[in-house]
Structures are given as C-alpha cells and as structure tokens.
Design a protein around this nucleic acid. Structure first.
Lengths: 191, 191, 191, 191
DNA sequence: CCATAACCGAGACGGTACGTCTTGTCTTGCC
DNA sequence: GGCAAGACAAGACGTACCGTCTCGGTTATGG
C-alpha cells in the first residue's frame, strides 16, 4: 500500500494491495502456509480491513482467480475447426504449467482451497476452462460432426481435468503423451 | 483405549485407538477441523504417542485408508464380461456415496489431505480404484475386444474420477445420469 | 441525539448527548468497559466529534463530574454548629452510596479514571467534598473551638476519605460504625 | 527465561520470569501500558503460559506484591515505644517513595490495578501496612496508654493512607509536614 | 533377577495464528 | 466548518493447536 487512504468508502488501494499480497504469498508459500496475518503484513494493511471485506482465505483466493491474478492458470483454447489440434494446444498450456513444480504446487494449493471453500471450487473449474471454454469448444465440435450428437460435452471437460488433477494430487509426473492419448480416445469417431 | 499399559514394544491398542479416532473425527468434523490434540484426546492417548509413529495428519489418514477405516470409500468393481454393466455397478457405488452430503464432505476432506500430503493422494487414487481395480478392469475389456487395442486404460480411470471429484469440490450435485453417459461415451465402440 | 444537524458552531446537543452517554455507560459498565466507540454509538455521534472536544475518557469523566452528571456522588454537609452531628449526616450520605454495590463500583471506576488522569483525581476529591466542603466545615469547627487551633483540616478530610476509599478498593464491606468511631476520634477534644 | 524447561509440572523458571517481567514493565510503563503480550515477550514465554496460571493483569500484580517484587512498596514500622517517632520513621519511608515521580506513578498504577481487581486492593492495603503492621503498632500504643482505650486502630491506619493516596491520585505534591501534623493530631492525647 | 530401555498417558512449554475489539486519524457528503 | 458515518493501520485481546519436552510409571528383555 502506498498512501494512508481511508474515509467512509472502500479503499481501492487496500483492496488491490490485499489481493496482490494474497496471490504472491499463495504462489510462494502454498495454501497451508498462507495466513491472514501474513497477508495483512505483506499488504501493509490492518487485519480488520481484510475481514471487513472477505470471510476467509478461500474468498480471497476466489477473488484473485476472478481477477486473473493467478495468471498462470488462465489457458486459452482456440477454435480452428481442428478439434484434436485445438485440444492439443490447450493441453500444451495446461501441462507446461503443472509439469513445473511451482505450477503443480499452485494447483494443489487451489485444490486445497477448493476443498475448503465451494466458491473457490467453482472458480477453479472455471479458470481451468472446464465450465465454459472447454464445454463450448466440444459443443462446437458436436455441431461440426466431429463428435457424435449427444456427446456429454460437460462431462468430457471434467474428465480431461481429472486426468490432470489426480496425478498432480498424488505428486506423480504428468505424462503428456498419455493424456494426449486419452484425448484422442475421447474424441475418436464413433463406431 | 481400554487397558493402561504395556511395555517397551509398540502398543497395538494405542495404534488402533488412534487410527479409530482419526477416522471418526475426520468423518464427523472434516479435515480442517481435525487436530492432533483432538485425536489424542478422543483416542485417550498422549500426543507424543501419535508423533512417535506418524509425522502428520496426512500420514494418519493415509494409514486409515490403507486399513479401510474410511470404509465408505471402498468400492468394488465386478468383472462379469459386460463392461458397461460392471462400470455401472461401480458408478452406482461411488455416486451413492458422494451424493450423500456426508460422503461428499468426506471426499473433499480426503482431497484436502491429498493436496497437503502426497501419500494421501496415492492412497486416495488407489482407494477409489483408479490405480488398479479400474485400470485392470479396463485392460480386461481391451483383451475382450470391448475397447480398442491401445486404449489408455490408466487415463480413462483418472478421467472418470475427474468427472466425480471436480463437481464434488465445487459442491455441485452429482448428476449420475450424465456420468453414465460419459462412461458410455468412453467405452463406445471405436469408429 | 435527536435532530441531525447544525452549522459551523459547536453543537450543544452533541455535547450534551456525549456527556450523558458517558455518565450512563460509566455507571452501567464500569470504567474498563467504557470505550470511546461505545460512547459515540450510545450518543448517536461520530467519534471525531468526541475527539474534537475531549482528549480522553478521563476528560469526559471529569466534565461529567463538573456538571454533576454522576449525581450520586454529590453529598452535602450541613453546618448546624454540631460538628459531630453534621459529619454524621455527611457520612450517612457517603456510606449509603458506597455500601450499595453499584455505588461502590462507580467509586472504583472513578478511582481508576483518576489513576489514569490527574484532572479526574482533582474533580473526584472535590466531588467527595474533601477539597472545600469538608475542609471549610472543619475550619468552621476550629473557629468554634470544637477543634484545636491549628488542626490540619485539609488532611483530616483526606483521612476520612481514605477510610472509605481503601476498603472500597479492596471490595470489603464498609463498616459505618467503625468509620463513625474514627470521626469521633478525630474530633475528640484535645488533651 | 534461560533454558527450555517444560514437563508436566509447573515451570518455576517461567513463573519467575513472568513475575519479573510484570514488575519491571509495570514500573517502567505504568498500568495502562502494561499488556499481557508485552509481558509474554519480555519474559520470553508463550501467552498461554501466563493465562494458564493467572486470570488477569491484576492477578499478576497481586502476586508480584505478595512476593515483594515491587520492593519499593515495602515499608517497615519500628516499635520503640515512642509512637510519634515510630510513625515518623514509617511516614518518612512512604513519603520518600511517593514524592518521587516514579514512586507516585507506581502507586497510581497499583491503585488502578486495585480498582479493577479486588485481590490487588487487598494486597495493596497489606503492602502499605494498613492491614497489619500499622494496626498492630497502634494497638500496641493503646496498650501503652498512648492512645485512648477503644481507639479505632484499623480505621486510623486507613485514614493515614488516605491522606497519602488521595493527593497522589490528584497528582498533587505530597506535603510531608502536613501529613505529620495529621498524624500528631490523630495520636494527640485525649481530652 | 534385576537394571535398563522403550513405551505409555498426561500435560506444560515457547510459539504462531486465529477472529474480534478498540484506538485515534482520516475522508466523504450532508447541512 | 461542524457533524454522522465509518474505513483505515495498528495492535492487544483471549483461545486453539502446533510440535517438543519432561514427568512418573509400566513392562519386556538381556546381562
């Protein structure tokens, strides 16, 4: 924080400083070493200013994700008409993040936060693209005839995420080749 | 704990009492309200006796899972030759657990524990069947020609888990029908 | 406070409301539960309005005493010519106040305030009569020959107060009979 | 604190260190700047170790007084047979303490503590000698015929204390000569 | 056959963080 | 410019757990 700003309206500087500190400390130290007092100190803010606007660590993290302050978790998914190629681009993005130890740790932190706080779970699914991006791309593929009519596009998105999240939780290395085979299997032409 | 003493060898009664208390408190109160002191008190045991044999909450939970003390998480998966039917039986088991609020909360607790402790992640994947049971069943289906040669059986297991875990984290209701459609899609005959 | 606003001159309504709230809360809750925020809220006043005109809780309490808003502490002392009888009337007043638990608590509160804030100490001694009323009455007795020439009238007042304040601080019951014996001893004819 | 001593029995080192820190900080900073956290830090002790054994600042201070750690408050009162002379010795001790600014501040701190906590009031009266020493000396004077039979010895002690405490509260200079005149008046031969 | 060593329950210890409360300052917008 | 309202940085409150450390006692084993 810079200036000692207050008054009867919410301080944008304090808000910004708090979310910034949250994102920084989460990435550096992980969810279980993330403390409200640590955030307050790092942000140069009184604890009460945090509690006035957020109920919990989870709420802070959810806001960070909404505002894209955990930037590494934003992936994009093109729609060139080539479903397999597009998904590979997206996979490339995800895998390059979670294959990095710091990225894996961040994902585990987010999962831990999600387990405690439903709002984080929502935002996490959204940030990873499962909610909209991925489902929409798959729906588009259905319309293009690349996936069978009535394919469970929402569930397919979750399924791909699962193949990534579960190994990350278990600290196993991500095998990009295997995941690509999974994707190929999922979108293989119907029999 | 019942009897008071033993000797210079590890007390089976203490060990049992501790794991029992861990499982009970985890199910009742969730991972984030699970404390070492609470376990010690519930088990009628000194804290040191816990720390002597386990490094952390995670290690306790992992042991509980290994011994099947979180019994609701043990699912079985038949192999009648009918892949779709067998998977439906297994799904039925899983869904009936996580659809129950307590079961969902327990799964979230385990995921939180897994995010903190790699060993729990391993055990969690195993307990849910992803590691062995599910993969083996799918491999058996490959041999039976019900899945294409070279189908990524390990990843398929993780994928199904993902479609269950992610909604549970986000506290969304589990839609059993949709998941069944996913499974049908995954094992649909190749084109 | 009733009406909402005024102009660039000090609001008598605010001042009155603040002192009123101070006196009420002090009597109800005691000195250590008396807070500036509580007073502001009770008075329906902004905190700044208090800080603008008073430096501390002590200053507020001193003003309350000056204006006789802690009315129970105002005692009167007649001068009928009968020194012993007059002092007994005064003692009666004091003892009936401090013998009541609420009165004792109020006196302790005032002593606590006095210990923090010299101005309150001044006002407290004055309110209890030690400064003027009591000394003047005793001086009058000296003139009437009821006390020896040169009797330390100021100190005698303090002395009687001490016999009341110290037991109140220690939460001991006030023994009115004993105090009357003290007074009789103090004013006994010289040898 | 020196060594990291613990075990299932109370640590004498911790106890000592805490009372020592309390006495030191009370004398340095006064009662209202005395905080539990400050004591814990100064003593090199966890806050819980304080709260485990004492309920409040007042209880700490009372213990300090019992053990004579606020040493300046211990006065002695000889009994040579010469009542006036003995009291003058005692007065000398008291006055030399409270005439010093630090001594006066300490006494005000003790009075503030007493106002909050009855036990401190008890100990304070005792430490100043009102309870036993002074009363006993006066009773001895009664037996020696220096005071009239039936003189209210307890109240006389309180009275002298009052003449000291009230001016200290009001931050007025202590007038040793006046107090000596008061004492002379109190013990003057009966008429 | 007795000493010793590892175990046990209990719980005090120095700490860290919790979430709440209050302080005194500052700002906003109304009057 | 005074006012009600209330956000702000700061920091103490009293509680809950952490992981380490005695303590006193029990019991199996091995010298």
């Amino acid at each position: 924080m810079s200036e000692h700003r207050n008054g009867p309206v919410r301080s944008a500087a304090a808000r910004d400083s708090i979310l910034d500190a949250t994102a920084r400390l989460l990435a550096l130290q992980g969810y279980d070493n993330l403390t409200m007092e640590g955030i307050a100190k790092e942000a140069g803010v009184g604890k009460q200013t945090i509690y006035r606007w957020w109920r919990s660590r989870g709420a802070l993290i959810a806001d960070c994700m909404i505002e894209g302050r955990l930037a590494t978790v934003e992936i994009d998914l093109p729609d060139t008409g080539d479903l397999g190629g597009d998904l590979n681009v997206w996979l490339e993005g995800i895998v390059s993040i979670v294959a990095d130890p710091a990225g894996g740790a961040l994902l585990r932190s987010l999962v831990a936060a999600a387990a405690e706080d439903g709002a984080v779970g929502d935002r996490l699914a959204a940030a990873l693209g499962a909610d909209q991006t991925l489902s929409l791309r798959l729906a588009s593929a259905v319309r293009a005839g690349q996936l069978p009519e009535g394919a469970p596009v929402d569930q397919l998105g979750l399924a791909i995420l699962g193949a990534i999240i579960v190994p990350v939780l278990a600290r196993r290395p991500i095998d990009a080749v295997e995941i690509r085979r999974l994707v190929d299997h999922l979108i293989r032409p119907a029999g």
